[in-house]
Every structure is written in C-alpha cells, then in structure tokens.
Design a binder for these strands. Structure first.
Length: 132
RNA sequence: GCGGAUGGCCGGAUGGCCGCGGCCCUUCGGGGUCGAGGAAAGUCCGGACUCCACAAGGCGACGGUGCCGGGUAACGCCCGGCCGGGGCAACCCGAGGGAAAGCGCCACAGAAAACAGACCACCGCCGGCGUGCCGGCGGCCAGGGUGAAACGGUGGGGUAAGAGCCCACCGCGGGACGGGCAACCGGACCGGCACGGCAAGCCCCACCGGGAGCAAUGCCGAAUAGGGAUCUCGCGCCCCGGCAACGGGGACAGGGCGCCUUGCCCCAGAGAUCCGGGUAGGCAGCUGAAGGCGCGCGGCGACGCGCGUUCCAGAUGAAUGGUCAUCUCCGGCAGGUCCGCCUGCCGACGACAGAAUCCGGCUUACAGGCCGUCCGCGCAU
RNA sequence: CGGGGCGUAGCGCAGCCUGGUAGCGCGUCUGUUUUGGGUACAGAAGGUCGUGAGUUCGAAUCUCGCCGCCCCGA
C-alpha cells in the first residue's frame, strides 16, 4: 500500500467512514450483479458505476452477500464481518466516487484467509476493476 | 487400582489498539453504560398476546393423548410410585387402557393357525389268510421332523393300553378377605383347565382441542398512477333522443404509426382546490419476564410459600467484531527426568453453534474439562 | 411464521394404503445374426429401499426422531 505522507490523517479510518454507506435494496444488488466482477481467493468483488440520475447519500456504496453456500449462520456472519472490516479499511481510500461495490463471501476462504492477505486481495481487485 | 452407572456445572482468560448496535448525558469535540446460548438450532408440543368467528347445551365427524397419584398457567413435559423387559449390580428401557362388542390378518412350513375336530400313526378285541398284513368295531391318550406361536408341566394312582380320569405340587382362571388415595400387591378357598397373538390394522372406551398468526394487530403516510366532489374555462359540423343540461353515432380540422402515398388508430376535455382508499417507508407492538439471584420455611421429589435484591440484548442487508501480546488448551518434534512430569521450538487458532414477539418443555449437535453420588471386581488393613 | 411433498439398480419410476416374493423401461455386460458397426433376438449382472430407533415372529411398507432436496401461503 502506498500511503502518501500528506494523507497521514486517514491512517486511522474514522468511526463513520466518509462517503461510505451500505446497500440495502435488492435492485441495487441485482444491478451490481450484471456489472463488472473480479474473483479473488477470499471473495468476489462486483463493481458498478452508478447512473448520475440515481440518488445516493454517499459517493461510495458497498454491499455484502453471503449465501447459504458459505455455511451456517455463524460462518455467514463471520465472513460478513471480515468483509466489512476490509471494506472499512480500504474503500474510503481506494474506492472511486460514484461507484457501488458488492463483496461476496466464499465458503471457507473468506473466514480462513489471513487478514492482511484478505485486505491485499481487495486492493488488488480494486486496481484490476478500475483498469490499473 | 480397574471397569461401569448416574446427577450437576463450565465450555477459553486477561490486557492494548481500531471498530459496531441500543440507551443516557453533551460545552457537539466527545463521554458513560449495557450488549448472544445451553442449546439462541430443529420448529415437535403447550401457553401468553393480537385479530377474526361464535347464544347455551347435547350428538356426530376429524385430529391428538392413553398404567396410577401428584406438580404446573398449560402440556404429549416433570416428579414419585406400580407393572413388564434387560443387567451379577448400581441402573436403564417401555405409545403401558380394552382382544370372554365386532370386523380383519397370521406368509412359508406343518396333520392342524383359532376351535375344536378331521388325518397319519398308535392300542385293544373279533374275523380272514399268502404270519405280518388286510377288513370291521371300540379307544382317542402319548407321538407326528414344522413353526414366532399349537389342545398345561412334573410325579404318583388308575387302566387292556391310556388320558385332569383321580390326587399332590407348580402354572392358569375366578376370588371371600386384608393392605394401599390409586395403579397394584398378598391371598383362604373354589374351578380340572376353559380364554393364542396383532389395536404404532379398522375399531371400542375415557379425556382434550374454534381458526389464524408479530409479515398478528393499531397509527402516521410520500412520489407516480387511478377514484370521488366542487369551481372555472372549453364543448365548432351532420344524424338520432331530449323542454333543457346533456347522452349516443359519424365525418372534418388536429394528432399518432409510417421515409412518402395508400391505409389504420385517437378525436374531447383541460386546470385548480378538497376528500377518501392505499403502496414504498416510518412509529407502536418490543421487551417488566408464569424472569433471574440470595436467604428462610414446607414437601421423599417435581414444586410451592414468604422476604430481600432492581439486575439481564433489542438489531431489521440485521450490532455483540478485527487484530496483536501473554497465559491456558490441542497436535507434532527434540531434550531432560526423581517416570508423577518438566523445558524449548513449530503448527492449528479453539466443540456445537448467532437472539429476531415472549415464556415453559421436548428433540437433536457438542472438542475438552471440573465436582458429586452409587455399583461390580481385585489388592491391603 | 405456517403448510405440503419426495428420497428404492448408473438414470427415470412402480411396489407402501391392505406388512412375508423388491419389479418395469432406458442404460451396462456376454453371446447369436453382420465383413464390421448399428438394428434385432437370447441370456446375465447390478439395489445398506436416505439414516437411527421402536411395534411385530417378520418392516421398503406401520410409528417416532434425525439428514437432504423440492414446492406453496402470509
């Protein structure tokens, strides 16, 4: 991660991440599902540039999906928490304004993968989506 | 010490940094406080609560429950007892009412499968002859390889031979009487023995059950479309009806489809204000609970009574987490050892599992560990 | 939150209600026919009846508990 020296104030992510809100409606997920996607060992990232006419409270929005394939309720919640954590740490810095992101949990790996590697996966996935 | 039975409990700990949800305070920077389970799970029962339906009672249908007594708001749950089965025992298991109300089934095998006999075989007497068979009469007992199950078992008397034919004991059925609230237990005496099993097949008997479910239900309520009322403006031509308001039909202007022509379609409303239904969404329901904990009393126990304590999640794409360190735990390797274990390194990242209206149960899942009680065997005293 | 259905041979299904023998089609294998293949004919193999208990002399079948899948309604 290349942290600019001038951006030292964002090394600690704020309690309420600036410009990050959570997707809550099914149509938003369905639209993201038809857009770009990038599969990583720990998760699948879907990304979509919103139409300018769409209303949004924040520039960047993110959603989480953990289906029954991930496992039982404990495994699903754990995967979702780890995805939330990496999103909280990475997306306010690297997320593009005007985009929706959806993180999809995978069985086993999302919960097992070392946290730093999972975080690096999101960094890699974002750079590939936005065409490096 | 070994093996076993059973009851209860815990189910990672502490700290740093960064976060999440509710509530409270705030000088809006923030601060304080609380925040998963014994099963939160499966959704198998029982309730609370809300709405709908409903005079009361009886009968019927359907579904459920089923030894007896008690506990409970209630239960299909729990406790205590009884009976049956298993185990040397501690203890465990049991949908455990009724088969002399009825219907149905009991394959194969077997002489016979439900009620009592027929059959084979056997015994006695008579007759015949090719001397161990045939025929007739009488007896019906024991026997008939089967089968899950078959006209009680043993011994004695009796008899031509036998048979509950008779007797004793056991079994079976009934049962005065006694004990127990009851299930049930004991049982004088009587009966020569008659009554197979399946009701988790139909059924009979007794008892219970109105339906739906917090996405219940109540309140507030956009945008867009549509409904109604009032007012204002407009309503040209032809035909029909009507006093009229107006209604029905047709064509033109105008508009739409189409590159154009032909052709087809629309052809009267528009605006403002108000009203009601109601979607998204929001709020209430929403956590104060037949609750937990402690003490005392009653009860064998389930549990009940009294006092104290004010403690204990309320999310809604859904909080209770991420990461690091130490300890603990698990596995592997190496070393040491007084064989109990200890030390170091590496690895896994900690069993089952995440509240969704609440409560009482049931069922199922569960690494590892702790405490207690009891039984059998062995050893020592 | 509530309701319903299905697990049987490699695949698709009967059999279950009314308990004793698990059967059909396709597929597989082996022969025959053909120069060979297909087709046709003949024969054979192949099933813990999802799982664990219970009732019964006996369970795919009856009862209960689990597991998996599918479909409805609010």
């Amino acid at each position: 991660m290349t942290t600019p020296p001038a951006a030292s104030e964002i090394r600690k992510p704020p309690a309420v991440p600036f410009g990050l809100s959570v997707l809550q409606n099914r149509p938003d997920f369905l639209k993201a599902n038809r857009a770009k996607r990038q599969a990583m060992p720990g998760f699948v990232l879907q990304a979509r540039r919103r139409d300018p006419s769409e209303l949004s409270q924040t520039p960047v929005r993110v959603g989480y999906t953990c289906s029954k394939k991930v496992g039982n309720a404990v495994a699903r919640n754990r995967a979702k928490r780890r995805l939330r954590e990496i999103a909280r740490l990475v997306l306010p810095i690297e997320g593009q304004p005007g985009w929706d992101y959806v993180l999809i949990g995978r069985a086993g790996e999302t919960a097992r993968r070392p946290f730093d590697v999972l975080k690096a996966d999101l960094h890699t996935a974002l750079s590939r989506i936005h065409g490096a």
